[in-house]
Amino acid sequence: MENKEILIKAQEYIKETFLKEGTGHDYYHIERVVTNARRILQTEQANSFTVQLAAWLHDLGDKKLNNGIDKSEELISSFLKSLAVEQSIIDRVIEIVSQVSFSKGNKPSSIEAEIVQDADRLDAIGAIGIARCFAYGGSKNCILYSPDEKEKENSSIQHFYDKLFKLKGLMNTESAKLIAAKRHLFMEEYIAEFYREV
């Protein structure tokens, strides 16, 4: 199977699997990550096919969507084997995906992993990131906000401080850093307005 056809099959499978997902990790999130990755690829020397394939599959088996159990390796391997993808490519994609997550804290070991990590993190900040933060919080029964020190730890607003405001400084590629700077500023303005209204 040609690389282009594999990418089309991956897109179709992800759309079928994630279309109705309600935590902010839906098909359109994944599609945006692929778009971000393609944008970064324009200024980076990397294996475009591997980057795009890993971007399409980066949430497949994610522990956040599987009751705390990481099934990435199992599900990615099974899907790609069904398309008769070479084992070396399967291993490469699994390696990249294992280095994307913020919570795992893994440093990317290749430019391909750096691009996919950046592409995913860009979708966690800015206007889209704000919307996804509240969608995810709602799906996990997190409170929106509380001035109470004990309660605020489990709030969607606290997530800005625990993760979202840190992402700008964790981008790997120059093009992602430029995009992140603008999106970060928007989040700062949003939070300032949020507190004014509160």
Rank of each mutant, 00 (worst) to 15 (best):
G22F: 00
A135W: 00
Q42D: 11
H159Y: 11
V93G: 03
A181Q: 13
K140Y: 02
V34H: 04
P147H: 13
E114P: 00
V198Y: 10
L185D: 15
G137V: 02
F102E: 04
P108E: 01
A55N: 10
A192C: 07
L167Q: 07
K168Q: 15
I90E: 06
H29V: 05
R32A: 10
E5I: 11
F186I: 12
F49D: 02
I125E: 05
R196S: 05
M171K: 00
Q52E: 15
V198K: 13
W56V: 01
I6Q: 08
V97R: 05
Y136G: 00
L75Y: 15
R121N: 15
D70Q: 03
I76L: 03
E153W: 08
T50V: 14
T35I: 07
T50W: 03
H25D: 08
S77R: 14
I125A: 10
G61I: 00
I96M: 01
E189K: 15
K152C: 11
N106W: 04
V100E: 05
L7R: 02
C142P: 00
L185W: 10
Y136F: 11
Y195W: 07
C133V: 09
H159D: 09
A124S: 14
T43K: 12
K15N: 14
I94F: 08
E44M: 04
D118I: 11
M171W: 03
V93N: 01
K163A: 14
L164K: 08
L53K: 03
G22V: 07
G22H: 06
S156C: 13
H184F: 13
I90D: 03
V51Y: 05
A46Q: 02
K182L: 12
F160S: 07
L167K: 06
K152I: 12
F160M: 08
E12H: 02
K166C: 10
T35F: 06
S155N: 13
F102Q: 08
L80H: 06
V100F: 00
R38V: 01
S175L: 07
I191W: 06
L41P: 04
V93F: 01
I6N: 10
E12D: 13
R32K: 13
A192N: 15
Q42Y: 04
V34C: 05
I179V: 12
D120T: 13
E21F: 03
